[in-house]
Computed example of a mutant assay.
Amino acid sequence: MNKPLKSGLSAMQQNTQLCKVCERASTISLHPTHCPHCGSPVSVRTKHSIQKTWALLCIAFIFIFPANIYPITFLIKNNEAYPDTILSGIMTLLSTGMSGIALIVFVASMLVPVLKIIALAVISLAAHFKWKMNPKRQLIAYTLVDWIGRWSILDLFVISIMMAVFDKGNLLSVYPGIAATSFTVVVITTLFAAQSFDTRLIWDANLDAN
């Protein structure tokens, strides 16, 4: 039986580390590389966690611009191309009275990706520079980003389904634009950025700040 951890001290300060697979604690000095309960690899802190997160965030930040500027789809009708950006699609929905759907598209395709990048950037900066911020609020923000990021992949399926539904051969066809690829890169990189960040660094920064 493992001794319960004392409140007010981090697991590392108590010479203890937690397995992310079975979520059971073990002594660092006795089992430095593998969990004694399930045999999964364990570590006190994920190596180069912040560096990996920043690398992925930089890629997402670069691709967020073409994702919103360039056409995300091309509607081919009578051999004539009609490009649509995310914003023009939202404006079309508003002009046709579908304000609810326009709001959903705006939040999911424009607002959420930007907020995910900003939230992860602030959390990473706070961990790196040891800013004195509320760790519980940071964890809540991180949990929301991680949860929303997993559902953001549905936007890519919507584009695919839309192309499959509207593709009618030579008379009417829909093709993805460069923004679709850029948007895919943003979704995937922000998803992996959240996964690569070690949340234990949030508590380390708070302890060091105190």
Rank of each mutant, 00 (worst) to 15 (best):
A67F: 02
G100I: 06
V105W: 02
N79T: 08
S124K: 02
I64L: 15
A60I: 08
Q138G: 15
I59A: 14
F106M: 13
S109M: 07
S43I: 00
S124H: 02
T73Q: 06
T53Y: 10
A81H: 06
Q51L: 09
P66S: 11
F106V: 04
M110I: 15
K116R: 09
I69G: 08
K77H: 12
L115S: 10
R45N: 08
Q138E: 15
L75I: 14
V107S: 02
N78T: 10
S109Q: 03
I59T: 14
I123K: 01
R45L: 11
F61L: 13
K52N: 12
H48T: 13
A121Y: 13
L103C: 11
C58P: 00
A55L: 08
V122A: 05
L103V: 10
S124P: 01
V107Y: 05
K47P: 06
A119M: 05
K132R: 11
L93I: 04
A102I: 03
I118N: 03
A55P: 01
Q138N: 13
E80Q: 15
M110P: 01
G100S: 08
L111C: 11
E80N: 13
Y70H: 08
A55C: 08
L56H: 00
K77P: 00
I101D: 05
A108Y: 06
V107Q: 04
T85K: 05
R137E: 06
W54V: 11
V122H: 05
S49D: 10
V122R: 04
P83L: 07
W131K: 09
K130G: 03
S124A: 15
A67L: 07
I90H: 10
A141G: 04
L115I: 15
R45I: 04
A126H: 03
E80K: 14
H128A: 12
W131Y: 14
W54C: 10
N134Y: 02
I76S: 07
A141M: 15
P135K: 06
L120Y: 02
P113D: 02
L94F: 15
M91K: 14
F129D: 09
L57T: 01
S95M: 13
T46H: 14
A108T: 14
W54T: 04
K136C: 00
F65H: 06
S43C: 11
P113S: 04
K47R: 13
A102S: 12
I69F: 15
I140D: 05
I86N: 01
I72H: 01
Y70E: 09
L94H: 13
C58N: 04
F106A: 12
K116A: 03
F63H: 07
D84L: 11
V122P: 01
A127H: 10
A55N: 03
N78I: 00
L87D: 01
I50M: 09
L56F: 11
I86A: 01
P83C: 09
P71D: 05
L125H: 05
L87A: 09
Q138K: 06
A127L: 02
I64F: 09
K47F: 11
